[in-house]
Every structure is written in structure tokens, then in C-alpha cells.
Design a protein around this nucleic acid. Structure first.
Lengths: 182, 182
DNA sequence: AGGAAATGCTTTACAGGTAAAACACATGCT
DNA sequence: AGCATGTGTTTTACCTGTAAAGCATTTCCT
């Protein structure tokens, strides 16, 4: 199902219609000797991420939350138990300093609470307040419905294939914990 | 090639191994009634973007450039002619203020030059200096080689399919200029 | 011609992130 | 016990992006 140039037949009706394709064409014209293949994947992932985030943020913004804030609350909700700040950095893939700042804001808004560990007084335990849990539970269905609507521009089979290919890529990227040296 | 649950056979050997799958499983346990399908696509795109950018930035950083700076220089290089700041905002998908700031830095570094338009004195024209063009031309091959290496974790057919599916999604997202209301 | 509106760019005020240092406490070694 | 080292979290200084306001200039309309 893949043409010699690596372009699959599935995209035939919108081929060349995205901005990344145009950018790649420009590079090819200037540097015909370079293999611009990776741009077609990485450039598109980046651009899709940017566009999706922008769209996606709308329901969150109505609730007065940024995406990183929602990610933090969501981590607490989906794990179902208290998390320490360090665990939150792992769950949300953000730095400790960023988590500290978000926790400050979310605590002031009454969405999360903290308590000190009794054994080890360095560690804190963070949990959702009732208001926090209700907020997450209220937003999530809207959020998912919204995302479904955004993704409905492509066919369900395409979505499934995309999810599978991305899972494969992501799984392999994540398993090489050490970064490649270039 | 798509199972009833929308998971393609292609991902079988790494199924469930990415962190997004784990997150989705947690949500399913807490809210079994919700359709978490969109997370499998959007969550993975976001996470792939984050991981790839981190990896990808290494060769740029060695040249002392951030990705947004490189994008700006790249836009000038690939179009092959001068661009105005507004054109640069379109080419790089960033705000006018951000472009102004980057131009200031890049001008100070001697990588770009600006001249005023003779007809319309509001507009500026920005072009690469020789040093700027040499920098871009020096980095680009490294950058692409690096990206190729990163993507080599998946098979070439997968890359092609992924590029095609992303092109389709991106093309459709971009063509709906107006954002969805949620 | 002349003022209102539009356009291109920059400035300002501010939000939120990061890296590195700082801090508080725990743990391990001798 | 007592001190070095390690760990969990916060603080600091700074960088970069954005939204909104500001400025200069052009264009439109009568």
C-alpha cells in the first residue's frame, strides 16, 4: 500500500494539501540532495499537536484551566489516590518547579489539598478536593466529546490506524530512555 | 487490517507498551462509560511531539539556536527570498510579537538583516546574511540525519503510512480555518 | 484634501516554563 | 553518635511567549 516515494494510497484525496507538504517541497527545491523524509513525519506531528492543542484547549479554558493544570488534576483523578509532587512530575512529564507552581495555584483555588507525610517530613501528599474531583469529572466528558468532534474529520479506520502507528512509535521512543547522541 | 476495537494489527508487538495506553487504561477503570478513543490519537500526538522535540533539539542547541529561531531562519532559506515580519508570522505560525523578539536577537547575532520598504515605510524586509545562510545549510543535513536516526525505531513502511495519515489529518484540520465551537 | 479606518510592526505587562541553587530532612558510613 | 551524602521539594533568576495597547503609516471614502 506504499508508493515508492513512501506516500501511502490512503492520503490520495488530500495529498499535498497540508502546509508541511508545501514546506517540504520548498526545501526540496533548494536542497534536492537532502532526504526530507523525516520532516513529513516529525513536522506533521508537531503541527498537528499545535493545531489540536489550540482546538482542544477551548473546553478547558471555559473552566478556567490550562492544559498543564488539567493534566495535573487528571493524574490525581485517574490514579485514584494521593500523589507526591515527584510522582506528579513523572505523571505529567513536567519539571518539579513547574509542578510546585501549579500546585500553589490549584491549592489556592481549592481544587487540591496537601498534607505532609508523617514518616518522612520532606514529602508532601497531594489529593483532589471534592471541588477538584467534580471539576475534572465535569470537564472530561466535554473534553472527550470535543476531541471526538475534532478527529471526526478523518474516517474511523484512519483514526484506529493512526492510533496504532503512533502507539508503536511512542512505545519505542519511550523505551530508549537515554537520548540519542547526535 | 483494523480490529473491532480500532487497534491495527501493525502495532501488535508493542501493544500497550506506551505510556498513553497506561493512562487510557486508568481512565477506563475510573470512568468506564467514557469513550477514550480520542486520547489514543491526540494524547499520543502530543507526547510524540514532546519527545521528538526534545530529541530533535540537540543538534540545534549545539549551534546555539532554539527551534523557533531555526524555524524562522529556515523559512527565509527555503523560500529563497526576503520576507516581511508578517510573512514570517505566517510561515512560522507564531505571533507578531514573538517574531519581533526573535528578529532582534538574530539581527544582533548577524544571522539576518533588515531593510525598510521604499514604498510603504511601515513594512520591513528581512533576509539571511551569508553567515545566516551558511548556518542553516550547515545544520540542516545534521538535523535531518538526526531525525532519520530517531525515526529509524519504526519500519520504513510504517513511516510512510504515518506520514500519509498525518498529512490527511493535518490537511483537513488546516482547511477548517474557523475553530470548532464546543 | 482630509479625517476615519485599516495595516504593519513594536512595546508593555504579564503568565508560565526551566536550570540551578537553596533548603529541609533522611540515610549511610565510620 | 556525628558527619557526608542523597533525596524531596521549593525558591530564585531568567527567558520566551502571548494579548493588548501603542505608534507610524497608508488607504479608503466623501
Amino acid at each position: 500500500m506504499t508508493a515508492s516515494n513512501g506516500r501511502p494510497a490512503a492520503a490520495e484525496d488530500t495529498a499535498g494539501r497540508d502546509t508541511v507538504a508545501a514546506v517540504v517541497r520548498q526545501w526540496q527545491a533548494v536542497h534536492p540532495e537532502l532526504d526530507t523524509g523525516p520532516m513529513e513525519v516529525i513536522g506533521r506531528i508537531n503541527r498537528c499537536a499545535a493545531l489540536l492543542q489550540q482546538a482542544e484547549d477551548a473546553p478547558l479554558r471555559r473552566a478556567g484551566l490550562s492544559r498543564p493544570e488539567f493534566d495535573l488534576l487528571g493524574a490525581l483523578r485517574r490514579t485514584g489516590h494521593e500523589l507526591t509532587p515527584s510522582e506528579l512530575t513523572r505523571e505529567t512529564y513536567s519539571s518539579g518547579a513547574a509542578v510546585t507552581k501549579r500546585l500553589k495555584v490549584l491549592t489556592e483555588r481549592g481544587l487540591v489539598e496537601r498534607r505532609g507525610d508523617t514518616r518522612d517530613r520532606r514529602v508532601a501528599h497531594v489529593r483532589l478536593t471534592d471541588a477538584g474531583r467534580e471539576l475534572v469529572d465535569g470537564i472530561l466528558p466535554e473534553q472527550l466529546a470535543y476531541e471526538t468532534a475534532v478527529l471526526s474529520v478523518i474516517a474511523p479506520e484512519g483514526r484506529g490506524e493512526l492510533a496504532g502507528l503512533l502507539a508503536d512509535l511512542l512505545g519505542r521512543l519511550e523505551s530508549r530512555t537515554a537520548g540519542l547522541r547526535g
